[in-house]
């Protein structure tokens, strides 16, 4: 029988997508914080992006299901924790591409990475924020002055 490893669990969880951004994995979004194997139990700590995100319960269920599929005879305990707080600095490089594929621009990231919020359609950095509040807690509404399209941006949280 194959030995269960933390890496195997993380790989399995890579397939769990954000229900509201189906191109983005919870690993790329930095929602997965920690995986521990303790005896015959898999413990998984997740970080909520925004406290009011209605997808949190769905994400928890999807994570439980993915972990159980990997190790059917193992107890799986999934919980959301507040420490450390989730910030947009947890997004990895893959997340930018995944967001863009869904028409959402990346947030301002940490120093040395993207400093301009670019339009997901035409790539222009001539964009402005129309409203900090979009269709979900993690998104803003922006407007591109180059191609004149409104678009959604991932909200910077840090």
């Amino acid at each position: 029988m194959k030995t269960l490893t933390v890496d195997a669990v993380r790989d399995a969880l890579r397939a769990v997508m954000d229900p509201e951004i189906p191109t983005a994995s919870i690993l790329d979004l930095g929602i997965l914080h920690d995986v521990r194997l303790t005896g015959d139990r898999i413990e998984i700590d997740l970080l909520p992006t925004f406290a009011g995100c209605p997808a949190l319960d769905l994400i928890r269920e999807d994570v439980e299901e993915a972990a159980r599929a990997l190790a059917p005879d193992t107890d799986v305990v999934v919980r959301f924790i507040n420490d450390p707080p989730w910030t947009t600095d947890r997004l990895n490089q893959e997340a930018s591409a995944a967001l863009k594929a869904y028409g959402i621009s990346s947030p301002l990231l940490q120093i040395g990475r993207a400093q301009q919020i670019t339009c997901p359609y035409c790539g222009s950095d001539q964009t402005v924020e129309e409203s900090a509040f979009g269709p979900t807690p993690c998104r803003t509404i922006r407007y591109c002055n180059s191609c004149r399209n409104p678009f959604e941006g991932f909200k910077t949280k840090r």
Partner: peptide, 14 residues
């Protein structure tokens, strides 16, 4: 409308 609704959602989540 989205702004006030989002703020409401945040407050209830808090």
């Amino acid at each position: 409308d989205l702004a006030l609704s989002s703020i409401a959602q945040d407050e209830i989540a808090h």
